[in-house]
Design a protein around this nucleic acid. Structure first.
Length: 686
DNA sequence: ATAGGGTTAG
């Protein structure tokens, strides 16, 4: 009675003949029905049986556990006259697998140990409980279970060991996972334990170690081992290695499956490999795998990442059931192109928006600097009664606040964080510190930074940059030293912040020291931003020769910002000769360097070389260069007031300008007063 | 006979 067909035939025959089979056979029938999702038939057969034993009860309880009908399963469990360890373990695994029944699982586990129930927890119980621990992410439960394993003599069981490794890894205790694996190496490793360890290494980003485990006793490997290692590389920035391994996999005689293709697509996504994606796409269409939601959304993701929105849309349209993953990928794709209108259309098209989709929309608006839209979206989210699920949302919101220096909304988010009890991790605190700094409130930024429990190098970078931008170069340097003392490795962003601190306060030697230390001690390749800082530093301290010499040594292609900075240095030192040289280069780089043109024109204007200036201005017109007017704004009572240079259309322009005149007048007096004071005390004024 | 393990996207 292997097949469903045989089983049904047999069952029909019995009914017709009025024959009651052996309990053993009936139990088998119940299991067979359950295996083919014929739960009603299984229940009917169970109800009509004149005689039942513990196997019958187990079979029907299992059948309901499989369909996630925990209420029915528990009712049967409670009324079962006889229970053995299988009855308990089946019920337990149902509770563990179903969301919302975790407490039931814990209670049942405790009941098993109480005197009235007297069921021994065995290796099945332990693996199930370890899974629960992994799901709840409570490593201290896991440690208790590990002692329990030793006490009950289950510590050498392969199933339990692999569940233990899996649990420690998912709870973020990689060292313990490794220890558990090393312990079982003594008795001999089994395939699943090995695969659990490869997965644990990959989860931790320890790819070297994953490779070692994988290649140790390679004869054990199966396709899961291969797929695990491949996905590990694909997800940890090793796209090329992942694709290489996929080739090795088929050479070693293993067939590719959905898992393999999902990893290949993930590698394509990070490598932006459009051609390979097309190959996979073709393969998937041929193999009929396109109904797999992981695969099809993966294809949409790669096309979106490669800015091929036409293909992305067509694959998305082919997915019958609208897949929230592919919608999110499309939103990200359009956001990347700055097309927030299309992104919004897709966002609105989705009937069930998960929080990742909301976050994608938020960060799209932040990236395209549409901060008003961020706040509108946040309002919409609140109106829908959405509870803010994690810090990602708030980080986007804080990014928007920093962008437009809106401290009011930023403080609201800060307040929300404190009220809601969301865990304040390094990312969130970095976003808050950055927001306060960019809103001009260095005191708050410092306050939060100093009270942060956990710091990482990004948080240090943010705070160093904050000090640098507010002219606290001494504090920036001090903090950098502290960062080094605590063993954090500075990166290119750290040095950029340091160099800009030096640049703002004209610390040429200090800047040089940091620049060369960055290259020599930390092997960080300077980018255009770093070079621009150095050029500016020399330029502002009137050392144009040094700047020019430095310019000549730059080994990378120089961008418009760098050349613009150099032009500014030429302007300060009034060197038209060098300016013209830079001009040639600036014109060669392309047409997207409005700032450079304007600066160039200013160099000539400052020198009174009006003919030259006119020449540049003409070029600017030809390329439709338009300088964006500088703009400042201020929040007053929930309204934004915008001011641009020469703008006199504000409803209270007259009042504003008369107050401005008063302030200027008083300021003048103060400056004069200061000068007098400076003379009298010998110029010692900080 | 009935229960338990490792791999997949934003």
């Amino acid at each position: 009675m292997r097949s469903l067909k045989d089983g049904l035939k047999f069952h029909a025959h019995n009914i017709k003949a009025g024959f009651t089979p052996e309990i053993f056979t009936s139990n088998q029938l119940i299991t067979l029905f359950s295996k083919h999702s014929l739960i009603l038939e299984a229940q009917k057969l169970f109800d009509e049986l004149p005689e039942r034993n513990v196997f019958t009860w187990n079979a029907i309880i299992c059948a309901h556990v499989k369909t996630q009908n925990l209420v029915q399963a528990q009712a049967l469990f409670d009324s079962a006259p006889e229970k053995d360890s299988v009855t308990y373990n089946s019920m337990l695994s149902g509770f563990v697998r179903t969301d919302g029944y975790e407490t039931h699982a814990l209670k049942l586990f405790l009941n098993m140990q109480s005197a009235s129930d007297r069921v021994k927890a065995d290796e099945f119980t332990l693996t199930t409980m370890l899974n629960l621990t992994a799901k709840l992410c409570v490593p201290c439960y896991g440690r208790q279970l590990q002692s329990f394993m030793v006490k009950t003599g289950n510590d050498a069981d392969r199933f339990v060991t692999s569940a233990l490794i899996d649990m420690y890894s998912k709870c973020g205790c990689f060292r313990d996972a490794r220890q558990a694996f090393n312990f079982c190496k003594g008795v001999g490793v089994d395939l699943v334990t090995k695969n659990a360890m490869v997965a644990a290494c990959c989860r931790e980003g320890e790819l070297e170690m994953a490779r070692d485990v994988f290649w140790n006793q390679p004869e054990l490997n199966d396709e899961v081992s291969w797929n695990t290692l491949i996905s590990g590389y694909a997800q940890n920035g090793g796209g090329e290695e992942a694709i290489e391994l996929v080739g090795c996999m088929s050479k070693s005689g293993f067939r590719w499956n959905e898992h393999t293709f999902a990893s290949v697509l993930s590698a394509c996504s990070s490598l932006k490999n459009l051609n390979l994606c097309k190959e996979v796409h073709a393969w998937v269409l041929k193999d009929g795998m396109s109904s797999n939601p992981f695969i099809s959304s993966g294809i949409v993701d790669v096309y979106s990442k490669c800015s091929n929105m036409k293909y992305a849309e067509s694959v998305h349209a082919a997915i019958g059931l609208k897949n929230s993953f592919s919608i999110t990928s499309l939103i990200v794709g359009y956001s990347f192109q700055g097309n927030m209108v299309e992104a919004r259309r897709l966002f609105d098209s989705s009937s069930d928006k998960n929080f990742v989709m909301w976050t994608a929309m938020f960060s799209g608006y932040v990236k395209s600097q549409q901060s008003e839209a961020v706040f509108e979206l946040l309002k919409e989210f609140n109106a829908k009664g959405g509870t803010i699920p994690d810090a990602l949302f708030l980080i986007s919101g804080l990014g928007a606040c920093a962008l437009q220096a809106a401290m009011g909304p930023g403080k609201q988010i800060h307040g929300y964080v404190l009220r809601s009890g969301i865990e304040i991790d390094e990312k969130l605190i970095s976003a808050m510190v950055d927001m306060y700094s960019k809103c001009g409130n260095i005191m708050y930024a410092r306050f939060l930074f100093e009270r942060a429990i956990a710091r990482d190098s990004i948080l240090y970078n943010v705070m160093i940059a904050a000090y640098a931008h507010h002219g606290y170069e001494k504090e920036a340097i001090q903090l950098f030293d502290e960062m080094l003392e605590r063993g954090f490795r500075p990166d290119e962003v750290t040095f950029l912040a340091l160099l800009s601190a030096c640049r703002h306060s004209g610390l040429v030697e200090m800047g040089e020291k940091y620049f060369y230390s960055m290259v020599e001690n930390y092997a960080i390749t300077p980018g255009n931003d770093h070079y621009a800082c150095m050029i500016d530093l020399y330029g502002r301290s009137n050392q144009l020769e040094k700047a020019a010499e430095f310019m000549r040594k730059i080994p990378i292609e120089r961008d418009a910002v760098l050349l613009g900075t150099f032009l500014n240095a030429c302007k300060i030192s009034r060197n038209v000769e060098l300016a013209r040289e830079a001009e040639e280069e600036l014109l060669r780089i392309g047409d997207d360097n409005r700032a450079g043109y304007v600066q160039l024109a200013n160099v000539y204007a400052a020198e009174g070389q009006w003919v030259e200036m006119g020449r540049i201005r003409k070029k600017m017109r030809g390329k439709e260069v338009k300088k964006f007017a500088g703009c400042s704004w201020v929040y007053v009572k929930n309204r934004v007031h915008i001011f641009t240079s020469g703008y006199r259309f504000h409803s209270q322009t007259e009042a504003i300008y008369s107050i401005l005149d008063c302030l200027n007048f008083e300021l003048d007096d103060m400056v004069k007063g200061k000068l007098v004071l400076q003379h009298s005390v010998g110029g010692v004024i900080s």
